[in-house]
Simulated assay, not measured.
Amino acid sequence: MSQIRTVSDAKRDFYRQHNRPINSIFRRVVEELLVEMHLVSVNVDFRYDPFFALGVVTSFERFMQGYRPESDKASIFNAMCQAVGDAPETYKNDATALVELAKRCSGQQLIDCFSRDNPPEGAGELWSKVEAIAKNEKFKYSRLFAIGLYTFLGEAEPALIEDADKRDEMLSTLTEAMNLPGEKMKKDLDLYRSNLEKMTQVLAVIEDALVAERKRREKAEAEANKPADNVEETQPKAEVTDSPAE
Rank of each mutant, 00 (worst) to 15 (best):
Ala132Cys: 09
Asn118Gly: 03
Ser8Ala: 15
Glu100Ser: 08
Val84Ile: 13
Thr151Val: 01
Tyr48Met: 09
Cys81Thr: 05
Leu189Gly: 04
Ser24Tyr: 11
Tyr48Cys: 05
Leu203Val: 15
Asn78Gly: 13
Lys226Glu: 14
Ala102Pro: 06
Asp208Pro: 02
Tyr48Ser: 11
Gly122Tyr: 11
Ser128Pro: 06
Glu239Arg: 07
Ala146Asn: 00
Glu157Val: 09
Leu54Arg: 03
Thr234Cys: 01
Asp117Arg: 05
Pro181Thr: 03
Arg28Pro: 06
Pro181Trp: 04
Glu183Arg: 14
Leu153Gln: 04
Asn195Asp: 12
Ile161Glu: 12
Asn225Gly: 08
Ala53Trp: 00
Asn19Thr: 06
Met64His: 00
Asn118Glu: 14
Gly66Arg: 00
Val130Tyr: 07
Gly124Ile: 00
Asn195Lys: 12
Leu171Trp: 02
Pro158Gly: 07
Lys237Thr: 09
Asp229Val: 13
Ala97Thr: 06
Lys129Leu: 08
Ser8Asn: 14
Leu39Ala: 05
Tyr150Ala: 01
Lys215Gln: 14
Gly122Trp: 07
Ala146Asp: 02
Val56Thr: 00
Ile25Val: 15
Glu176Trp: 08
Ala10Leu: 07
Ser194Ala: 08
Ala228His: 01
Arg216Val: 01
Ala245His: 09
Lys198Ile: 13
Ala53Lys: 00
Ser24Leu: 14
His38Val: 04
